[in-house]
Amino acid sequence: MPRNSVLTSRAAAPKGAYSQAIRAGNLVFVSGQLPLDENGNLVGFADIKAQTEAVFRNIEAILAEAGSGLDQVVKTTVFLTDLSNFHGMNEVYGAVFSPPYPARSTVEIGRLPDGMLLEIECTALSEREQQ
């Protein structure tokens, strides 16, 4: 099965040896997205809701480039630097998705760079299979 990199200018460019996402068959694996705008600038310093919204804008743009969308997400992993931010993140998350909600894991991690409060990765289905 071929696997192809997904790249859009509507989300922050990768700053390392990874792809924004990989398409394999009818699956899209989106790398962990940070609360950055398309120019790589932090969005919503110390504001979990603004940062969560920024992360989902990036995920949405990447999924669109891959021929998918937020309504096709089947699994997410949320990394929080402080679990006390769970409720603010979850409020935005609940507005982004509708039932049946994707499967989700949420874990607290040590830290992220530059005041970032969360990172989210996901797996989604794609309407078209990768050629």
Score class of each variant (00 low, 15 high):
43 V>E: 00
109 I>R: 09
59 I>Y: 02
40 G>F: 01
75 K>G: 07
70 L>V: 03
48 I>P: 04
29 F>M: 13
62 I>A: 00
37 D>V: 03
114 D>N: 02
113 P>Q: 00
86 F>H: 06
32 G>A: 12
88 G>L: 04
119 E>C: 14
77 T>K: 13
5 S>M: 14
109 I>F: 03
1 M>V: 15
43 V>D: 00
114 D>I: 05
106 T>Y: 03
73 V>K: 01
66 A>C: 04
131 Q>N: 12
78 V>C: 03
77 T>G: 04
65 E>C: 11
33 Q>Y: 07
55 V>A: 00
60 E>I: 09
121 E>D: 15
54 A>S: 04
51 Q>N: 05
50 A>H: 01
33 Q>F: 03
110 G>F: 05
102 P>I: 02
42 L>G: 07
7 L>T: 14
99 P>T: 01
44 G>D: 10
17 A>Y: 14
114 D>M: 07
110 G>E: 11
32 G>R: 09
121 E>A: 15
86 F>M: 12
79 F>T: 10
116 M>E: 09
32 G>W: 08
58 N>G: 15
24 A>D: 06
34 L>F: 05
11 A>G: 04
82 D>P: 05
104 R>Y: 08
49 K>I: 12
12 A>W: 01
128 R>F: 14
129 E>P: 09
55 V>N: 06
108 E>N: 00
57 R>C: 03
76 T>E: 08
111 R>G: 04
91 E>D: 12
77 T>S: 11
63 L>A: 07
46 A>M: 15
74 V>R: 15
129 E>T: 12
46 A>I: 13
97 F>C: 07
125 L>W: 03
96 V>P: 02
33 Q>D: 09
75 K>Y: 15
15 K>R: 15
118 L>G: 08
92 V>R: 03
12 A>R: 02
31 S>M: 11
121 E>K: 09
86 F>Q: 06
49 K>A: 14
14 P>H: 01
66 A>M: 05
25 G>D: 01
71 D>K: 11
74 V>M: 08
91 E>Y: 13
21 A>M: 10
1 M>W: 13
128 R>A: 14
64 A>T: 12
112 L>E: 11
85 N>Q: 09
21 A>I: 02
25 G>I: 00
117 L>Q: 06
22 I>A: 07
30 V>T: 12
52 T>L: 05
66 A>G: 08
126 S>G: 06
75 K>H: 11
99 P>V: 07
62 I>C: 03
1 M>L: 15
10 R>L: 13
64 A>C: 12
13 A>K: 10
47 D>Y: 08
100 P>N: 05
26 N>F: 05
113 P>K: 01
24 A>F: 13
12 A>K: 03
118 L>A: 02
